[in-house]
């Protein structure tokens, strides 16, 4: 359990973290979300006692980080993948960390194996690709077999395979009952891994809620139907007392609050041919952008870029083409509340 109380960090006149109080509960993946410059990395650095808070405290299992006897055995953190000595081999970089916390040397080989770096263990880490560097950073975080793991934007700059690997790793670690605190500025990424969400903007806490609640509050789910007998379908739906929204742009109907199964059976009863019957979910990314819109510091001032990015307009029923793609992925992987 990590507890933050009134955590504040000022850099000169700039408030990077503003009176943050929240808890990271054990045994779940907590997503730490915020746009660029929101203060995520600064908060994480203060959690590890690297930056001194201007005010407020962070406690880990009731203790200050610097009072943890051998901290790598409590918390493993990946803040910056490049935070290793490039002239040292991957093995030796991990070895000196292990020794400082009296972690058995055999564990170094174990974590190298776990992240798939065994073949390059004796190579200097400066030759590593971004993905290999990230894996080395994760190996360092896992070194002390800690109950709490903290990752700052672990998927940044990774290819799809690397992203999938980290996602599965985090899920696996959470399944073992570990506490995982992971930052991102991508809601879509969080939706796939996190059970709890903490959202900040300009250093302030904007939301602290379960992923399920966030989805319930922020996403509209509906069923999309398309039929060559569109007019008959509309009539049937109308007779059944179901509201259908006509979306001429795509030639589809959108139905709120009725399960796809029920709609399919209804169409079958009336022998209506369906070309599409698909459950849809409105983009969580859009909900996140709406939430943080006021606190986004660095807007793109390109012509046409307004307060909200295109496609984030509140209740536009015509979804951009890319939305269902991860919406569907989300459906498949989220555990549907807790």
């Amino acid at each position: 359990m990590i507890e933050l109380e009134g955590l504040t960090k000022r850099f000169g006149g700039k408030v990077a973290v503003d009176n943050l109080s929240f808890q990271v509960r054990p045994g779940v993946v907590t997503g730490f979300l915020g746009p660029n410059g929101a203060g995520k990395s600064t908060t994480m650095r203060m959690m590890l006692d690297l930056d001194n808070p201007t005010s407020g405290t962070v406690r880990i299992d009731g203790k200050h980080y610097r009072d943890l006897p051998e901290p790598l055995k409590y918390i493993g953190a990946l803040l910056d993948a490049k935070a290793m000595h490039g002239g040292r081999s991957a093995y030796n970089n991990l070895l000196c960390l292990a020794q400082s916390n009296r972690i058995p040397t055999s564990r170094v080989d174990e974590v190298l194996d776990l992240v798939g770096l065994t073949p390059v263990a004796r190579q200097k880490s400066k030759g590593f690709s971004l993905g290999m560097g990230q894996r080395l950073g994760i190996a360092a975080a896992l070194l002390g077999d800690p109950e709490i793991l903290m990752f700052d934007e672990p998927v940044n700059g990774l290819d799809p395979e690397g992203i999938l690997w980290i996602r599965n790793l985090m899920k696996g670690l959470a399944a073992e009952g570990r506490t995982i605190f992971v930052s991102s500025h991508l809601m879509s990424e969080m939706a796939l891994t996190a059970e709890h969400l903490i959202v900040i903007g300009q250093g302030k806490l904007l939301a602290d809620l379960s992923m399920a609640d966030f989805i319930q509050q922020n996403s509209r789910s509906y069923v999309r139907m398309r039929s060559p007998q569109q007019e008959r379908l509309k009539d049937v739906l109308h007779e059944a007392g179901i509201d259908a929204i006509d979306v001429p742009a795509t030639g589809t109907l959108e139905i709120n609050g009725v399960a796809a199964e029920q709609l399919g059976e209804l169409a079958a009863q009336h022998q209506i041919v369906l070309h599409e019957l698909s459950p849809q979910r409105a983009s969580l990314e859009e909900a996140f952008m709406r939430m943080t819109a006021d606190s986004v510091e660095y807007h793109a001032h390109a012509p046409g870029a307004g307060e909200l990015p295109p496609g984030a307009a509140a209740d536009n029923p015509a979804r951009p083409a890319d939305v269902p793609a991860w919406g569907a992925g989300f459906d498949a992987t989220h555990k549907g509340g807790k």
Binding site: L48, D49, L50, R66, A83, M84, S100, N101
Partner: peptide, 13 residues
């Protein structure tokens, strides 16, 4: 190298 952060996370005192 930025190693200082890793080092201090391991030995915070």
């Amino acid at each position: 190298t930025g190693m200082i952060r890793t080092s201090l996370a391991a030995v915070p005192r």
